[in-house]
Design a protein around this nucleic acid. Structure first.
Lengths: 228, 228, 228, 228
DNA sequence: CATGAATGAGAGTTCATTCAT
DNA sequence: TATGAATGAACTCTCATTCAT
């Protein structure tokens, strides 16, 4: 218990995470696909009923396998959790990689990030990463998860810092700005409903606008207000 | 289980919630304070280890009472949860009430809300409301909690709509804007650490700025930049 | 626990039981009536939900008193049970006393008993005596209850033996005959519904006929007897 | 809770019950016999200490398994109860089937039923069916049990009605007659002791005689009595 | 007398996990 | 490789009973 040596040792960065995924692909296809099927089912159920309230028996039943069979693919319930987490994180990391590589001003990168990130919340694994509350984890895993999250966060901060440097973003605390953006985006995972009236695209656009330009009315209006 | 008739019938609005609190005060002090002590202890533990992972035995132990004694004050574990939730919600509702009453343009009200709300996350009950994930709840309570949350959300939307009308806020979808703001703020509950370098005030100020004015560096608008 | 010294020492016969009742009447009216109110409420609930499944809290609530108040009138939950039992038994004993005193042939007495007994099952206490299964009792009380029941049984047997002696009842094993009659009657408590189509009188008459004359159609015998 | 879908859907008639039993036999022997062992142990304990007062821990202990192991075979404590009930009921239904098929006058069939039924009370499951008081059941199961009982009852009534039609039974209310017989028989479960002086055969014979011919002395005797 | 509060001793049930086959 | 069975450890909740006030 407690310490869960996550497949081949601790993962220390999102880069490793992605690397992990390719190594993963070399496994026997059969076993591999079953593993993934388990994760897909599990993550859906975790999102619906929370990790703690989802018994492995239910996961097994839904997959039409037996409970101990799960233990062939995963050491623990927590390993399933962590693997879901990791898959979701890889998605986010990938998106960030692409954006970082763009040759555009910081603000545009941030806007691109907002769009990409918003898209991720439609995907179960992405949502899961965002919704998982640390308090649900045993202290062993908690540290790992926190590290993962911090990693993502720092990369967003870098984007913002870049923008401040190139002047596309006004002077601000990159840390707090990153938190604000991440928060607004993460919260989407809480209220978004696929069947709802808003498309992911619409949400992404509006959020990019609000977060980069703010709520405040047009300069004119503001100017007037100020002079008044 | 499922329906938990929460002290004196179901509460249908945040207004009622606040009213409830005063009725509360008329109770015998002794019993009252013990009830509150339970809630204070419980909410702390729920924040730390999550509701599901906090056995009532631990709560009782911390309070130095026996487990069944808890059942004198609450019907269920879930009623404890809901009561914590309600207390937290009352705080938020109160803040909103005050702000709504202000005689200021919508944007200023929103900024005030951001400040007030940010302050709430230092308080356990406030944090708890924000952090509680619906998936942890049984479907019976889930509906109630969702209603509470929606209530708060709609009031923030009204503030924004007000701002749009009076021109202090530029044209935008009040629903999405409210989500963006709520998200950014709620997320604070996730990363804020009392012992950390940032004071609540600092966070509040910077968030108010970012969310109302956006990230974009508008050198002109903000001064000469634009005309240049 | 276990041994329940039933008010003023063990009761050894139905005679004592009845005697007990009058002594009882000398008590302070107030206390007395409350005691009885408790028993009336309790017996109803025991009939409805069984003794084991009826918490004293429910009894208290229905009476609008507090739980510990019950302990002013009764030592135990089991004492309440036993007192209900005793009251019911007194009714039966009384009926038997009256019948025994009649100056009629045994068969007629048995028929009278059947009528009287049938009437008792409309009364909660009577029903309770009949329905109470020994297995619900702790071994301490079980012995007492068994003794009570045996007492009643033996008196019915005496009635039958009388009948055999005076020729009104054909030769049979009085013990088994008593069991058959008692069984048929007791079972009424199981299926009788006050709101049902059959009146207690109808049931009593038909039972008296069936049990004394049997089912067999004896056209000849009966016809002759009647015409004679 | 409440509704307990008992193995392969709800059973609606005693006929189905018997069918159920054969399907039952096709199961893997091992699991099957263990299931039965549990029921055998449980029913004995329920008879001895009543259902409510028999903790599953005691049942498990007697079987030398652990408490949760019981949950492999049964969903609930109540499912164990119901299964015991069902097994007992199947016995009764079987007996009734055989008797119904006989080519004899109604009175003879009733006598045969009395004999068969009396024999059933030596068997734990049979006794249990008879002794179980509805008040011990949760309302969910209560309805099912009541239906089962009614079924049996109606079949006995049919036998009596048959007898009335063919003249072997005198005119009477079949419903009440059935209740009288059932009651007398059921009561046996209450007082019968295997170690006692009476054999089941003796009881059966005497009951058949009393219930079909009544207590009343020979016609001659009666004639005399009346003329006197 | 009566009550609010507290408690000890379970009871039923759940569930992650292991093991023989 | 996969499964049925079993288990230990909890956990929530109940309830008869007592005690200070």
């Amino acid at each position: 218990m407690g310490k869960i040596p996550v497949r081949a040792g601790p993962v220390n960065s999102t880069a490793e995470l992605v690397g992990h995924r390719t190594a993963f692909a070399n496994r026997r296809r059969d076993s591999d696909s079953k593993r993934e099927a388990i994760l897909h089912t599990a993550v859906k159920m975790f999102l619906d009923k929370s990790y703690s309230r989802t018994p492995l028996a239910d996961v097994a039943e839904q997959l039409k396998i037996t409970k101990p069979a799960l233990y062939h693919y995963f050491r623990n319930k927590e390993e399933i959790l962590l693997e879901c987490y990791r898959l979701g994180l890889a998605l986010i990391a990938e998106a960030l990689d692409e954006i970082t590589a763009l040759d555009r001003p910081g603000l545009a990168k941030v806007a691109a990030f907002i769009r990409a990130y918003t898209n991720l919340i439609t995907i179960d694994f992405g949502r899961f990463v965002i919704r998982l509350d640390e308090s649900e984890l045993s202290s062993g895993v908690r540290a790992q998860v926190r590290k993962f999250k911090r990693e993502i966060d720092h990369r967003l901060r870098s984007l913002i810092a870049e923008g401040i440097e190139d002047g596309s973003i006004g002077p601000c605390d990159p840390k707090l700005a990153a938190f604000a953006i991440a928060g607004a985006l993460n919260w989407i995972a809480t209220w978004y409903e696929p069947a709802g009236p808003l498309t992911v695209e619409e949400i992404a656009s509006e959020f990019a606008r609000i977060l980069t330009q703010g709520l405040a009315g047009k300069p004119a209006g503001r100017a007037k207000g100020k002079s008044a």
